[in-house]
Design a protein around this nucleic acid. Structure first.
Lengths: 142, 142
DNA sequence: ATCAAACGACTAAATTTGTAGTCAATCGAT
DNA sequence: ATCGATTGACTACAAATTTAGTCGTTTGAT
């Protein structure tokens, strides 16, 4: 016998749920009707409208979205910020790092990203702040 | 009716699978017997030996591990590098980024990591190389 | 007022994941 | 040679995920 419970660590979204959440987050200031989401996911994912609607309902159940009744339909709004979910996903990636991989993975992400000069500068500042305070190879010290 | 196939984008590991893979990767040079893995996961996860063995078998089925028969048991070895899987996981994190989040997420990861000075230096070099080549706010240019 | 379109609730089914039991074969110690 | 421990193969089964259908109700156009 086997009880099963998962939820990908804690607040985890499934891949399909991410796709829906991304649409809602993008439209976070007006909020989304189900239709706004499924017209898009129909194009991008080829999903039937009902598929998207099912996922929306589950996201509400799980507390990732709020649904306010408006007319005959609902207005869906994110319950939390995209950033919070992304940071949580980043944390669970970090949790899987092995010895010596972290730097390489962060490097890889940096390479694949188009950061603005401002973002790069901030990152560089952070690196400067941290250099010398860690885990040094510690050969020669005055 | 509904066919379902998932696999978390492509090569994705489930959370339980990551836990097993991490043990095998850590012992990648000797290889692991099932027992090596389940003594550890029993401690760290509280799993029954059979649970771990099931996951090992599934990982072989999915091609993430190879199993070479040795005596009465098998020697499990990673079919791919940990780094490769981590980079794939990083890519699917990147795929979920929204406008303006990437820098913050990378910053967050950097903050949470203990990189060596060497790694920090490499990262800094990369940042320097990239600064000025992107997405500039583009106000003043000589 | 009528009626088609659309909505959300409910239902459904294949698959995957998590978790573990059973069991025949085998290895190792006696 | 015998027998207990261990192994991997197979089985089990609940919960979660993906994907979508049905249907009563509401709405908007006529």
């Amino acid at each position: 016998m086997a009880p099963a419970r998962n939820e990908s660590e804690e607040n985890g979204l499934t891949p399909a749920e991410w796709k829906v959440m991304k649409v809602v987050w993008r439209n976070r200031y007006h909020g989304c009707a189900a239709r706004d989401v499924y017209t898009e996911t129909a194009k991008t994912e080829g999903w039937a409208p009902t598929t998207t609607k099912s996922i929306l309902r589950r996201l509400v159940d799980k507390g990732h979205l709020t649904a306010r009744p408006v007319g005959n339909s609902h207005l869906y709004e994110p319950a939390g910020s995209a950033l919070k979910s992304l940071l949580a996903a980043a944390d669970s990636l970090l949790a899987n790092m092995l010895e010596g991989t972290t730097g390489l993975v962060i490097t890889h992400m940096l390479e694949k990203s188009r950061l603005t000069d401002d973002e790069l500068a901030r990152l560089r500042q952070l690196i400067d702040d941290r250099t010398g305070k860690t885990n040094v190879t510690d050969k020669n010290r005055p």
